[in-house]
Design a protein around this nucleic acid. Structure first.
Length: 268
DNA sequence: TCTGACCTGCGA
DNA sequence: TCGCAGGTCAGA
């Protein structure tokens, strides 16, 4: 499940492997992934273009291919692979790029929640909030966002209008490290708690990027490897196991239709 | 603001 | 066989 650190890992690995390379041909097989063009048009328009740059806005990956900008959202299970032989689900490979260098790039999406667009100019994402791993998120800005409304803190962290969507695994981990209950309201946090939350957002997300993301189910890096961050999670999927700090069993509840993991003793 | 649908693999 | 996993968005 590619969340923000996984998407950033993918971006860095794609750039490292393919920046400057020219797309010789594209085979696209599944029209349902394409939001504003057909698979055939996607293939035709990208063939012959060079991959100059890849940027990320939230969980969107924007490829700069000269005068055309394919945009990918990986959804729940979208991954890029250099080697189709490392795919665990080759029947779900929907896109295949052949590059002038002789390399190949495959897009696999088991659940097909991913989305692909083709733009003629760099797209804007006005509906997205601040990227939490950019330098744009400062303590004062987080304090302003938290106090501007009275929302559940877990849902706030998963709301892409505020912080470009930190997503489920990391929202639980961030609240655990900050010792803040997932049931709290955003406008009830003390100055000390806001500071703890701010530090925790940075720590947890940068650690996840450093560990090449978290692998559950279908996620693999571009090189076909698993992420390493699942070995460092302290509450996610650990319900019933003792808390890292106090040994109280970790609990699981559903908030906003998503599983939420927390320590009822440490998180106030 | 909340809920359900989309989708497929996996484990109970 | 059924429920769960979860990002996003439309609709209630």
């Amino acid at each position: 499940m590619p969340e923000l650190p996984e998407v950033e890992t993918v971006r860095r690995q794609l750039l490292s492997a393919f920046q400057g390379d020219r797309i010789e041909s594209v085979q696209a097989g599944n029209d349902s992934l394409f939001q504003n063009c057909t698979a055939e048009a996607f293939s035709r328009r990208l063939s012959g273009k060079s991959l100059k740059e890849i940027s990320r806005v939230g969980k969107y990956l924007i490829f700069d291919c000269e005068d055309i900008y394919p945009v990918f959202h990986l959804g729940m299970s979208g991954i890029f692979l250099q080697d189709a032989g490392k795919s665990h689900y080759p029947q779900h490979i929907h896109l295949q790029f052949r590059m002038a260098s002789g390399k190949a790039l495959y897009y696999q999406d088991v659940r097909r929640f991913g989305k692909i667009w083709l733009h003629h100019q760099p797209p804007e994402f006005k509906h997205l909030g601040i990227d939490p791993v950019s330098g744009e998120l400062r303590l004062g800005e987080l304090r302003r966002l938290l106090s501007s409304r009275s929302a559940n803190i877990k849902l706030f962290l998963m709301d892409q209008q505020s912080l470009t969507d930190i997503a489920n695994i990391y929202a639980s981990e961030i609240l655990f490290e900050a010792l803040i209950s997932p049931f709290r309201k955003t406008d009830t946090l003390s100055g000390r708690e806001v500071l703890a939350l701010y530090s925790s957002i940075k720590n947890i997300l940068y650690q996840a990027i450093d560990k090449f993301g978290t692998t559950y189910s279908a996620y693999q890096t571009v090189e076909g490897e698993s992420g390493q961050n699942q070995n460092f999670l302290r509450v996610y999927q650990r319900h019933g196991q003792p808390c890292w700090w106090c040994a109280e069993p970790i609990r699981k509840v559903v908030l906003g239709n998503r599983s939420t993991f927390y320590c009822p003793n440490c998180q106030k």
